[in-house]
């Protein structure tokens, strides 16, 4: 081959490579914009679902509370079911939205300094009625010397709420559910570790990874006893990691479950 040919070939190849690179960049941009569209779609849908649900629940509560006149017990029970069904749907919609924002990296962390005890008290108070209704006992154990957290308070609350909600859902009547906090040192850094445990049905070790995976249900059959979007723990993991922590589970089938997460204490959170 002549040297001229070599140069031509090299130039030709470089041109082809550049072309391929451009194409890849275009495909990448296209995928990103489609992903953003999908996220926007999910956000819109969930707003459009929440609005009529808000009206339905408000009207049903007006009826239930007798504001438009007294109801019979059976009527009140029926209306109460509309409300609890509506609230369940609302929660599912909320999870889908949070998941969509997480998947699109649109979840932002607004850290503030707070005491984990206040958040746990709030979450457990909200769950008290359900705990009583299911015939469970709920205990909270937080030593006085737990350091303050610097994290996104709403997000931490969301995580505890999710874990406690699961613990209650998967524990049969007569069981125990607990929240315990300890401070641990992880290398040089001080961390706050939260345990949410229960004496419920438990999770086989081979399913421990699965429960944190999106849309995963250990029992995916339509007749499964426990419903949900399958996003709760995926979101919980995302939120814990966004706040610089980690989350894991210790459990055996039939032996209850203990979910843990830890977050750095003090000012080391980003």
């Amino acid at each position: 081959m002549h040297p001229v040919d070599l140069t031509t070939t090299a130039e030709f190849r470089i041109a082809r490579l550049e072309e391929a690179l451009n194409e890849a960049a275009q495909v990448n941009a296209e995928l990103q914009s489609r992903d953003a569209l999908k996220t926007q779609f999910l956000a819109n849908i969930s707003h459009d679902l929440r609005t009529p649900l808000t009206a339905i629940i408000t009207h049903a509560e007006i009826l239930r509370d007798g504001i438009l006149g007294p109801l019979s017990d059976r009527q009140r029970d029926s209306v109460a079911s509309i409300i609890s069904g509506g609230r369940q749907l609302l929660e599912a919609v909320g999870e889908i939205l949070t998941y969509a924002r997480g998947a699109a990296n649109q979840l932002t962390v607004s850290p503030s300094e707070f005491h984990i005890a206040a958040v746990i008290a709030q979450v457990s108070a909200l769950n008290e009625p359900l705990v009583a209704k299911k015939g469970l006992s709920l205990s909270v154990n937080i030593p006085d010397d737990i350091p303050l957290l610097v994290a996104d308070r709403e997000q931490v609350m969301h995580v505890i709420s999710n874990l406690l909600g699961n613990a209650i859902a998967f524990t049969p009547a007569g069981g125990r559910v607990w929240v315990a906090v300890t401070s641990v040192t992880d290398g040089d850094t001080l961390a706050v570790q939260v345990e949410v445990g229960d004496t419920g049905i438990g999770i086989a070790p081979e399913h421990h990874d699965l429960v944190f995976r999106e849309f995963a249900q250990v029992d995916p059959s339509p007749s499964r006893r426990h419903h949900g979007t399958g996003l709760g723990l995926t979101i919980a993991r995302r939120l814990v990691e966004l706040n610089g922590g980690r989350i894991w589970v210790e459990s055996m089938l039939g032996q209850g479950s203990r979910f843990f997460f830890s977050l750095p204490a003090g000012s080391s959170t980003r």
């Binding site: 609005t51 009529p52 808000t54 009206a55 408000t58 504001i67 438009l68």
Partner: peptide
């Protein structure tokens, strides 16, 4: 912005 929500709250 939702007439549905406004109606519910107005009634209340």
């Amino acid at each position: 912005d939702s007439a549905l929500v406004l109606d519910a709250l107005r009634l209340l």
